[in-house]
Amino acid sequence: MINISSPFTLDDAKKLHAGDNVSISGDIYTGRDAAHKKMTELLSEGKKLPFDVKDQIIYYVGPCPCPPDKIIGSCGPTTSCRMDAYSPILLKEGLRGMIGKGYRSEEVINAMKEYGGVYFCATGGLGALISRSVVKKELVAFPELGTEAIFKLTVKDFPAVVAIDSWGNNLYNIGITKYRR
């Protein structure tokens, strides 16, 4: 198990390899379809992003509404490929990590290799357990998007696996090939 403190640098990213089990602590930002669309629109208009993505991690998640006695509702990862159209632009801006589930496109993997990004997968459908890793939630931008708004989450021991590292090694390909009959 490798402990990662977020935000993390290019040097830290280079220490991670596909298949590594990691435990993430620190601040990460939520963002999925609608927030990504808005962020890339801001960049194309030459405007600033709601937060500086340099060395940060974006977690692809749309949490459930928060019950009164909790910090956050169920909050497992969503399918990452829907963000593929936007991720290379954010990686170019310095985004260091992405947490989601499922395949990424060649364009995203090439951008990860070029700018030193890491793609982590969390377990899809583990939303109730993952909510226990969140110790604080703070609205950052786009409240009108509801569950798709950008929140800053302070997490402790958030469990993930390096699915694709900054060299482009891909755990999905490695794992599936190993068990294919």
């Binding site: 459930c64 109730a128 909510s131």
Partner: peptide
Amino acid sequence: NANYAKEQNMPICQD
């Protein structure tokens, strides 16, 4: 996760 969701009466998955 399913046991915890049941115990807490919270959704198993956020979707």
